[in-house]
């Protein structure tokens, strides 16, 4: 086990969503779930992050932003799609401006289902993301 599994720093991006999943992600930081216990930090800056956590779907205007954020993250990095919207477009999939899940624009490593996804499953998704991170690091090294 390397340091990656003990110190995953997260960048949270919210695409086209109802903000339900967004709030569940923030709930993970609160005393009830307290993800900092696992060394998880919400960084707000792609250059510091290991895990890109996306809620909401991709639309016309945020494609390049998601791609840019992903590109600016240094390797190794993983993407976790949280909620139905991020996985497939969810209930907005048919909307005129929505392209679909975020795997349309960046490679996704972990899909967390739910509408909204529960904090427990979000944390579980991040833990699986950490495993993916470890694998990628092994490949890089």
């Amino acid at each position: 086990m390397s340091f990656f599994s003990r110190s995953p720093w997260i960048l949270h991006y919210d695409g086209s969503s109802c903000n339900g999943c967004d709030i569940e992600v923030l709930a993970c930081l609160t005393p009830l779930y307290d993800v900092e216990r696992f060394g998880i930090v919400n960084t707000g800056n792609p250059k510091h992050a290991d895990i890109l956590l996306v809620t909401g779907s991709v639309n016309e205007r945020n494609i390049d932003i998601i791609q840019n954020l992903y590109r600016q993250m240094p390797d190794p990095k993983v993407v976790v799609a949280v909620g139905a919207c991020a996985c497939s477009g969810g209930i907005f999939a048919r909307a005129y401006n929505v392209q679909g899940g975020i795997d349309k624009v960046v490679p996704v490593d972990v899909y967390v289902p739910g509408c909204a996804a529960r904090p427990e499953s979000i944390i579980d998704g991040v833990v699986q993301g950490i495993a993916a991170l470890e694998q990628k690091r092994a490949k890089v090294a």
């Binding site: 390397s2 340091f3 990656f4 003990r6 110190s7 609160t30 005393p31 307290d34 900092e36 216990r37 696992f38 060394g39 250059k47 290991d50 240094p74 390797d75 190794p76 690091r137 890089v140 090294a141």
Partner: peptide, 28 residues
């Protein structure tokens, strides 16, 4: 700080884990 906010907080050695990870990451 975590306790003051009613949280458990990270392990005491967390800063060292962070540093270890940062040194292993790619730099651009």
């Amino acid at each position: 700080s975590a306790r003051m906010q009613g949280r458990v907080g990270p392990p005491v050695l967390q800063p060292f884990y962070d540093l270890g990870k940062l040194l292993q990451k790619d730099v651009r």
